[in-house]
Design a protein around this nucleic acid. Structure first.
Length: 225
DNA sequence: TGCCAGGCCGGGT
DNA sequence: ACCCGGCATGGC
């Protein structure tokens, strides 16, 4: 994928706060629409924790409207800012100084932040080696028979964590490339992705082992595989 | 026109 | 522990 598409330069954000806002705003939404919302916040001087704290909910809703689900996302932003204030004295430095596992639990406690959003924050703003097993990642792995079709977020994330060295830069680039490939070759209603450049690196279909088929336990994998 | 997009929550089995 | 409907805008 890297050879086919080159480095993706993700996450497309300038600051940690932009990563966090983008992670919330992009939930089940095309990035373009989330980027528009970020631009609106920026153009209206709201792209700082102090300003976000002062903004009314109506104001937030108005500016993030282009991202869709704007009432929920405005509340989620508000929930995060409130939590940061109470739990971290309003400091992202304090927040990101916490151990990844603890911080993840706390983020999941914020209404509107689920596993993918929390992990995107941990990886792309905190540089923690946590794989973001988003819809494209799950779809591509399932289409190639690496995980079950119905595999959920944590199952796919576990699959990747078992087989990859815990390297944030690797997770970053790999995930970004999976999304790029997914956008081109692995949409929802396309059953096959014969054009997918991943095919080149995988065993032929008849040679593939059922790595996580059915109720079988995950296979132990050698170190650094 | 209809489908899709880098989810998450709440209520129901 | 799943399953489902609701949430909403913008692009093709």
């Amino acid at each position: 994928m890297l050879r086919a598409f080159g480095p993706q330069g993700w996450w497309p954000a300038r600051t940690r706060l932009e990563v966090i806002l983008g992670a919330i705003l992009v939930q089940n939404t095309a990035w373009q629409n989330a980027a528009l919302a970020i631009r609106n916040l920026k153009d209206n001087g709201l792209l700082s924790l102090v300003k976000l704290k002062r903004a009314s909910l109506d104001e937030l809703e108005f500016h993030v409207k282009s991202a869709g689900f704007y009432r929920q996302k405005a509340r989620t932003i508000r929930n995060f800012v409130d939590w940061l204030e109470h739990s971290c004295g309003g400091s992202l430095n304090v927040m990101f100084a916490r151990p990844a596992a603890e911080l993840r639990r706390q983020l999941l406690g914020i209404k509107g932040l689920g596993p993918e959003t929390a992990d995107a924050i941990l990886l792309y703003a905190g540089r923690h080696p946590v794989f973001v097993a988003d819809a494209y990642t799950r779809r591509i792995l399932a289409r190639h028979g690496l995980v079950r079709d119905c595999a959920g977020y944590s199952e796919v994330q576990g699959f990747l964590h078992q087989r990859l060295p815990p390297d944030a830069a690797l997770f970053n680039e790999f995930h970004a490339l999976l999304v790029e490939v997914g956008k081109r070759y692995c949409k929802r209603q396309v059953a096959l992705c014969e054009e997918c450049p991943l095919e080149e690196f995988l065993p032929k279909k008849h040679e593939r082992q059922p790595l996580l088929a059915g109720a079988a336990a995950p296979q132990p994998v050698s170190e650094g595989a």
